[in-house]
Design a protein around this nucleic acid. Structure first.
Lengths: 201, 201
DNA sequence: CTTTTATTAACACAGTGTGTTATTATAATT
DNA sequence: AATTATAATAACACACTGTGTTAATAAAAG
């Protein structure tokens, strides 16, 4: 009976409009009204697709995380497991302009999740990503027998996750000190210290 | 000629009022009007001491950083340099409720500094803290001859700073996974890996 | 007692997120 | 083809926000 429009498609187009604003002017400029205008609709119309702002922001993050996943899946990783791990970890760190924006939005949302009720529910889901990926990476290295025997696997997982997110935030806030090259260097250095000397080329 | 009031004292009392709100309800609830009421004055009066909200927030951070410094200066550090370094680093990480609040406000402000013009100027000053402290700690360990010969001092500084801030943010966002004990464990573990085996007790 | 000026209060303004209500448009039913 | 049900949209109202401006108050100095 009703006129039918592709709900999900419209949400995506809204997300893209919002992203354009965020890219240029930051998260807090992406108000519902501004995004609505950018997306070519009224604020009330937008509210029909996202009943709350946090909902919109969450969708945006999910959407762009998906995009990122697709990107990394289509990527071909190195044969050398150590190098492959390094490449995966580099995906988590803002080494180019696009990832910089994604990362800053990400951290802002993550910190907002401490006080916003809407975001609170998704907090763990949001913040778990790096931790799980770090775990996987360590496990891969363990399976491949590359890791030095003296390491504590459990602690290495926690350490790697923290290091990556620390680098992520430093690269964001102090790009002069933590340049993409520097970040890469630190990650490589860290991985090297985990390994048997004999495994290094 | 004019009535005289202690400007700085009033700013501090405002800062404390704001801090009370932030502690209970988060940064974004600390609006000028709310803080003014909490401090027992009108919004216009508050504006006389802080002409902008960012200015107020910056003062609050400075104020509480000073308090933190005083606290750590009055503290007595261990004789064992490795242990002393560990204790200093633990000061940077949200292992108790008070530091949790300080840290979350800190990160929120730091990330806002990416888009807010007022905060932008203070960005480096704000974000440099951990980096410089990490540098000092590594240098102390170098001077004491505790560090293993195989390490790259420069990279270790960057790595430590990133690790500490990463732990800081993880302890904030995932206190279930990164409990105070876990954080301590990771820091200790990291320091141990930097050292000569012979130096460890 | 008057003058001077720091301090305070009271608004106005544009912007925000969030709701509610009315209107439009369209697919299905009669 | 006319009617109807309802998704989609628009247009408000509301209580906030930060930021200004402008007038009133209070107290120290002449």
């Amino acid at each position: 009976m009703p006129r039918i429009v592709n709900h999900e498609k419209k949400r995506k187009s809204i997300a893209e409009a919002a992203w354009n604003i965020i890219k240029k002017e930051g998260t807090e400029k992406a108000s519902i009204r501004r995004v609505a205008i950018e997306a070519g609709m009224s604020a009330g119309a937008l509210r029909h697709y996202f009943s709350t702002k946090d909902e919109m922001l969450l969708f945006i993050m999910d959407y762009y995380l998906e995009e990122g996943k697709k990107r990394s899946q289509s990527k071909s990783w190195s044969e050398n497991p150590l190098q492959a791990v390094e490449e995966v970890l580099l995906e988590l760190v803002p080494i180019d302009e696009e990832k910089k924006i994604e990362t800053s939005v990400w951290w802002i949302l993550a910190l907002q999740s401490l006080t916003s009720d809407t975001l609170k529910e998704k907090k763990d889901e949001m913040t778990n990503g790096t931790y799980e990926l770090a775990n996987s990476m360590i496990e891969i290295l363990v399976l491949k027998g590359i890791l030095s025997d003296s390491i504590n696997v459990k602690l290495e997982k926690s350490r790697l996750a923290a290091l990556i997110d620390g680098l992520s935030i430093h690269a964001l806030l102090r790009p002069d000190v933590y340049s993409p090259e520097k970040v890469k260097e630190v990650i490589r250095y860290h991985l090297e210290t985990l390994c048997n000397e004999s495994q290094l080329n």
